[in-house]
Amino acid sequence: MHFFSHQVDRPLEHIHTDNNNLPGLSNDQAAQGLVSLVDHSHEHSDLGHGIHASSHTIFNIPWIHRMIPGIEKLAAEYHTGNFVAIRGSKEQIFEAMPIYARIGMHLLFYGREQVKILQSHTVESLLKEQSIKEGKHFDSPESAANIPSFINTYSLDTSELLEPDVSKYKTFNEFFFRKLKPDARPVDNADDPRAICSAADCRLTVYQSVDFAKQFWIKGRNFTIPNLIGVDPSSEKASIFDNSSLAIFRLAPADYHRFHCPIDCIVGETTHIPGQYYTVNPQAVNEPGFDVFTANTRSVLYLTQKATGLPVAFVAIGALLVGSIVWTNGGEKGKEVKKGEELGYFAYGGSTVVAVFPKGVVEFDEDLVSNSAVPVETLVKVGNSLGKTPPTA
């Protein structure tokens, strides 16, 4: 993740909004750069010198300089990433963006309008093609060679793994959606039926209403709850979630990628919504002309909260280079699941879960609300307190 301690006034380093975003880089060069990064991960074991290089490390990687003109200037002129708050302190850390996400963003912002690239690809078709290709590679036995460099690049703690011997993982994806020891993620307020917990190891933002979410964080013009969950705005389901509260759990590539239940509930139906494979990085979510959450492929699981009998929509959103969304307990309709228990996982790639609570069902913890209004994400783990359901709900 390449974390750096820092005190900041501006939590989000916005990308440039002119056509010199990556100096001297054409859309075809950017597209070829992304393809080359994906191919490099198939042929070389060191992900830190390829697809997971950041703007802080690319000076030592000559082949990237040759493939992506101007990348050194980008890295030298400004940080490429965002700041994240450490819960329980006033400290913030800088999270550098992997180079593959940075190039994907350049293509989306400057090459989407009917521009054909690399032998008549659209940007959307190229991103989907490369996402599928990377997913297939990381499902192959050869990809196990990528695991040690991934652990080293992100300084991962393997002692908390259910299987700490990394040589036992047969593919990179097996490691990517690794399981943790049963006691690795204790659940806050586990015995309180109205307590709500974090669904993932993630960077979290929370908003008491959709209007607040759109004011501070989600700037896409087409973002609505009906669009997010794929229902008719005039439907009964849409009315249930009118002016909902939102918790947005962003999983970075290094994170533990299984997601867990935020409430005590009964598992309901799931709906898959096909879509794009855009990056879910904060810079993209904060771009007014770019609808990440309502454009990307996603799977919607409905959970009935036991304390209130009301539905909560749990939306797992795919992203750039994410291979798939897999439901485990979340795929067993009618099953009783307690908060903190696993619902499913993402295959390779960083991604996002959005939990949608009907109005009045959640009062978020004040520190999370305050950080989200800055706006800045907060680092949390599975099981950490998110808030509670008030007695009046």
Score class of each variant (00 low, 15 high):
10 R>P: 00
30 A>Y: 04
31 A>E: 00
36 S>P: 01
39 D>A: 13
48 G>R: 04
50 G>N: 05
71 I>A: 04
77 E>V: 09
78 Y>V: 09
85 A>T: 10
94 F>Y: 13
100 Y>I: 07
112 R>H: 12
113 E>T: 11
127 L>W: 04
127 L>A: 01
129 E>T: 14
130 Q>V: 10
140 S>H: 09
144 A>M: 06
145 A>N: 09
146 N>C: 14
155 S>V: 11
156 L>Q: 03
160 E>L: 15
160 E>Y: 11
167 S>L: 09
167 S>M: 04
180 L>M: 10
182 P>H: 09
190 A>V: 14
195 A>G: 11
200 A>T: 03
204 L>F: 06
212 F>N: 14
217 W>K: 13
218 I>F: 10
219 K>M: 10
230 G>P: 02
232 D>T: 04
240 I>K: 08
240 I>C: 02
241 F>C: 01
249 F>W: 09
250 R>L: 03
255 D>Q: 03
255 D>V: 03
258 R>G: 00
263 I>T: 07
268 G>D: 01
268 G>T: 04
277 Y>K: 14
281 N>Y: 14
296 N>Y: 10
299 S>L: 10
302 Y>G: 00
314 F>V: 02
321 L>Q: 07
333 K>R: 14
350 G>T: 04
350 G>L: 10
353 V>L: 05
354 V>M: 08
357 F>H: 01
358 P>E: 00
362 V>G: 01
363 E>Y: 05
366 E>V: 12
374 V>G: 01
386 L>C: 08
388 K>G: 08
390 P>Y: 09
392 T>V: 13
